[in-house]
């Protein structure tokens, strides 16, 4: 009897620890989801309780119809999509050059670009705000799109470089011999082969823009220009904090993160760690 118990324990203990870690990870998140479904009187109670006693969608309704969160949502979406698209296009083009040319100049340039990744957002936001003010771009989506694209570029270049260098040169050679311009080589021959890499880079760039707070809160002062992270913080008006709709918005903002992670998990792992493992 004891031997079987021991056997089971030996087979099961990794799962046991993993489940504990999963619980630590998800307990706060699930509580937020539960709280978003509780009626207003049940949300901040002393003592607090975990699962909702009655379920209501009141806060979600409030969010969309009373507080008009749609423009905020659209802002975040537009800005994230635009900056992702542009950074992928510019980044892949540049990555192709870096992957296929070997010279000291290129190495130096690449190091310079990758250093850019280490600039803290705070250091850039003060001068950029001054610039945006002079260009009359404060409160416009353009200001954030430009900023996020530039912020995502070093990462995009680094990732795409890794993926492109995995494609053997012979494939390009045959294209060049046939008279293809470099642009054709890139788009017709190489791009189809690095679909997974493109996808994972795109996902990370999207989330960088979607999740960003500092630039958004400094550049977008107008109510209707806000993005989701800014709106989340704005529920605290100083006199009152509206946790009901705040919880609802938090749950909504979870959706992209969850979908992307679960749908693209394999690509994310291979993408991010490609550079890491190869050194």
């Amino acid at each position: 009897m004891e031997k079987t118990a021991k056997k089971i324990f030996y087979r099961v203990w990794p799962y046991f620890i993993l489940i504990i870690c999963l619980t630590v990870s998800f307990t706060p998140i699930v509580w937020v989801v539960c709280s978003s479904l509780k009626p207003a009187g049940d949300i901040l109670t002393i003592p607090p309780f975990y699962f909702p006693k009655t379920i209501t969608l009141q806060h979600y309704y409030d969010l969309f119809f009373k507080r008009d969160i749609s423009p905020v949502f659209l802002n975040s979406l537009t800005i994230a999509l635009a900056s992702t698209a542009i950074s992928i296009v510019f980044g892949t083009l540049a990555a192709y050059v870096f992957a296929r040319s070997k010279s000291k100049l290129m190495d130096g340039l690449l190091s310079l670009i990758l250093t850019g990744r280490m600039m803290p957002a705070v250091a850039l936001v003060i001068p950029l705000y001054m610039v945006m003010r002079q260009l009359n771009l404060v409160n416009t989506k353009t200001s954030l799109i430009v900023a996020y694209t530039a912020m995502s570029l070093p990462f995009a270049i680094y990732m795409m470089m890794g993926f492109i260098s995995q494609i053997p040169y012979e494939i390009e050679e045959s294209g060049i011999i046939d008279g293809c311009s470099p642009f054709k080589v890139l788009t017709l021959l190489i791009l189809p082969l690095i679909g997974a890499g493109l996808a994972s880079t795109a996902i990370f760039n999207f989330l960088t823009a979607w999740n960003e707070y500092l630039f958004a809160v400094i550049f977008m002062i107008d109510e209707r220009a806000k993005t989701i992270p800014v709106a989340l913080m704005a529920f605290d008006t100083g006199r009152n904090t509206y946790w009901g709709p705040r919880f609802a918005l938090m749950v909504i903002s979870l959706v992209p993160a969850t979908i992307f992670t679960l749908a693209a998990q394999k690509y994310l792992v291979s993408g991010v760690t490609l550079g890491a493992v190869k050194g």
């Binding site: 993993l18 870690c21 999963l22 990870s25 998800f26 307990t27 706060p28 998140i29 509580w31 937020v32 989330l207 979607w210 999740n211 707070y213 989701i228 992270p229 989340l232 913080m233 946790w243 705040r246 938090m250 903002s253 979870l254 993160a257 969850t258 992307f260 992670t261 679960l262 998990q265 994310l268 792992v269």
Partner: peptide, 23 residues
């Protein structure tokens, strides 16, 4: 497990802060 455990990393840092602040 790996997929689920990775989710916290993708969440908005502002939301992580607010979640833990109220939790």
């Amino acid at each position: 497990f790996r997929g689920l455990l990775f989710i916290p990393y993708m969440i908005m840092p502002i939301m992580v802060g607010l979640t833990w602040f109220i939790f």
